[in-house]
Design a protein around this nucleic acid. Structure first.
Length: 662
DNA sequence: GATACCTCATCACTGTTTTA
DNA sequence: TAAAACAGTGATGAGGTATC
């Protein structure tokens, strides 16, 4: 709460009511979270954030029209081969292509547009250049482009020698036998694997030294040259680092997947989390400690796995597929070789007898390198967030998918980041990482394609098709969304509050006694101010403990309210907060009767009175929750219903609206 | 120790599909 | 056709972990 600025002192009534609700509804929240303390040790469940803006809904409609259901499974929509399905696909694909091609918001300008920001391509000095060297050391752990080529070659040679040595030792061990018979699991490598690894090593060495005379390379001769290592380009760099962290290879030498679940119980190089707590096998330890690739081994987050073979939702989408070791041309040679080595020495060649636990959909992304920090050394977080939200909204990419696939964060974190981006200078290094990833996402021409492909199970190649479709989602009709509070509403609310406070002090009646004292004005969400409905005074049960009235709220919502109940007019919000009891069942019954008697549909009622969709109205009317179980936000519709019931012209207004729509 | 970052569960809500 | 059911989404707070 402190982080979100929800200071109870600034909103005492809210805090008080919330605490009441929390107390009453405790069993609905905390009591069913018995694993809170264990959560960090449990496997991530794969759940995966932003502001709910109208664009999301509209683009959902658009995509809904285009691709049908968004079922997480491969739905029938994607299996269609008929023209209709193709047309829909074409629409979404061309839309994505258009966005990517259109010079506009999604360009590289935002950081450069910052007064104090530097273009990644202008190679601004690193903001960390003057920082503590320990920080640089930490970051250098992820970076190996600055390692001299000779050293790289030497490392390769060492690893080759080690493999050969191990092979001999393995054979010796196999002759001596291990407890339980046979070789240790990590030793059970067929000769073909070793041979392939050696060949791969040779290839990588050759790539590093195109046509160069390699001193001290007796094992390497006659290998073709390959251009040097290119710099990391955006997501590709991340992908290559993912390779480094996740050396998945099958028997054919293909790198299977570049992203990993943040599965804390998943195996790491063949070890489970629990295994990691045990003393490492001596030989294992020697192997790890002695590996020259320890220099390039990525930092492993606690519980982070490097050995899962699970695939990320973008495993074949946002991250370009890799054919083989050589396919990762943009990666550091050390990274590629680390992949080979790790795979050889750590992964059993035989699949486990027990299938790995259902993987989390969350991908572990490679860390941001110092180079990337240097490239993006000053970003306009607001601008990045704005563009990301636009992209997500336009293509109906969920925060969950975006978070898990692009940022490596959960949906909740994404929502938080998108809703409340901190200024760059206020972010810690770790806090800057998501924004750098967002920036790279925005700069990657194909990122949206691939993300959409992932979300809708579209073959990535199809996304490369282009077209001219550029239809923007239509603006929603005003009636579909609640109107922001107007000055009149705020004024009404203020006046209401003071009267409510008086009523509370003098109250002896019940809310059900409608229309006795002078009604107050209140504007329903869907109506303009002149449609204000009458508001009955609030009465509370005498038996209820009465709390002192809260201090008057400021006319304008304080910043702490930003993003919270934005569309709720302060008056309704306060009423919801201050009303201690309300018979929701009775209210809904009356509403249903009124609608039925006057042949008014839930849709129009919901949109005009409650600012909700038909489905929501249905839920509310058919399954009203007890008042004490509702949050303040959840109480708002019932307050509005109550207000509507008290409106002498409620039916007339809706009938008029209904006729207008016809 | 304070704070930032993050995950997770929950809630409220939406849009789509199904049912009456 | 309207209502109900359902799946999916974003917002939010609590609480754990990492970092300063």
């Amino acid at each position: 709460m402190a982080r979100r600025g929800l200071n109870p002192e600034q909103c005492p009534s809210m805090a008080r009511i919330e605490s009441q609700i929390a107390a009453k509804g405790e069993k609905y929240s905390k009591d069913i979270l018995p694993f809170g303390g264990m959560r960090s040790r449990l496997e991530s469940l794969g759940m995966a954030k932003g502001t709910r803006d109208s664009g999301i809904s509209e683009s959902s409609k658009m995509l809904g029209l285009i691709v049908g259901t968004k079922d997480g499974t491969v739905g029938p929509t994607f299996g269609r081969s008929d023209g209709e399905g193709d047309d829909r696909l074409a629409h979404i694909l061309t839309e994505a292509s258009h966005m990517m091609k259109t010079p506009g918001p999604v360009t590289n300008d935002d950081s450069r547009s910052n007064e104090d920001s530097c273009s990644p391509r202008t190679q601004c000095p690193s903001p960390f250049s003057n920082k503590d060297s320990s920080q640089n050391r930490r970051l250098k752990k992820y970076e190996n482009d600055d390692i001299p080529q000779e050293k790289v070659v030497r490392i390769y040679q060492e690893e080759l020698a080690k493999i050969m040595t191990r092979r001999v030792e393995d054979m010796r061990h196999s002759r001596e036998g291990f407890p339980g018979g046979g070789m240790p699991p990590h030793m059970e490598r067929p000769p073909e694997d070793i041979r392939m690894a050696l060949e791969a090593y040779h290839r990588e060495l050759a790539k590093m030294q195109p046509g160069a005379n390699l001193p001290n390379l007796p094992n390497l001769h006659g290998l073709p040259g390959v251009p040097g290592v290119p710099p990391f380009p955006n997501l590709l760099a991340l992908q290559q680092q993912a390779m480094q962290a996740n050396p998945h290879m099958n028997g054919a030498g293909a790198v299977q997947d570049l992203s990993l679940p943040k599965d804390k119980n998943a195996k790491m190089n063949g070890m489970t989390d629990s295994d990691k707590d045990k003393p490492m096998d001596a030989e294992e330890a020697i192997r790890h400690a002695g590996s020259a690739f320890s220099l390039v081994r990525p930092k492993l987050e606690p519980g982070q796995s490097t050995g899962s073979s699970a695939s990320s939702p973008l495993g074949n989408a946002i991250l370009p597929p890799n054919e083989d070791f050589g396919g990762s041309a943009a990666a550091s040679p050390l990274q590629r070789m680390a992949s080979i080595t790790n795979s050889l020495i750590s992964q059993p060649s035989n699949p486990p007898h027990h299938p790995p636990p259902q993987r989390s959909m969350k991908a572990v992304l490679p860390p941001i390198t110092q180079q990337q920090f240097d490239l993006f050394n000053n970003l306009n977080t607001e601008e990045i967030v704005r563009r990301v939200k636009e992209a997500l909204s336009q293509y109906s990419i969920s925060q969950r998918l975006f978070g898990e696939s692009v940022l490596g964060l959960s949906q909740g974190s994404v929502s938080d980041l998108l809703a409340r981006p901190k200024p760059w200078h206020m972010l810690t290094q770790k806090g800057r990482e998501p924004f750098i990833r967002m920036k790279m996402f925005l700069e990657d021409d194909n990122a949206v394609h691939k993300l959409v492909a992932s979300q809708y199970k579209i073959a990535p190649e199809k996304l490369m098709r282009t077209g001219n479709y550029s239809g923007a989602p239509p603006c929603p009709p005003n009636m579909n969304k609640p109107m922001p509070p107007t000055q009149k509403m705020i004024s009404d609310a203020t006046s209401l509050l003071s009267k409510m406070q008086q009523e509370q002090l003098l109250s002896s009646g019940h809310l059900g006694h409608l229309g006795q004292p002078a009604p107050l004005l209140l504007t329903p969400p869907g109506f303009p101010p002149h449609h204000a409905v009458t508001l009955p005074p609030q009465h509370h049960d005498n038996n209820k403990e009465r709390k002192p009235p809260p201090p008057p709220q400021p006319l304008h919502q304080p910043p702490v309210m930003r993003g919270m109940h934005q569309h709720i007019s302060p008056s309704v919000y306060e009423m919801a907060a201050l009303t201690q009891d309300l018979d929701t069942q009775t209210i809904t019954t009356k509403i249903k009767e009124a609608l039925l008697a006057n042949n008014i549909g839930q849709k129009i009622f919901g949109e005009a009175v409650l600012g909700l969709s038909q489905g929501s109205v249905s839920e509310l009317l058919s399954k009203p929750k007890p008042w004490h179980m509702l949050s303040i936000k959840g109480r708002e519709p019932f307050i509005r219903m109550q207000l509507w019931l008290s409106d002498a012209h409620n039916i007339d207004r809706l009938q008029a609206l209904k006729n207008e729509r016809r």
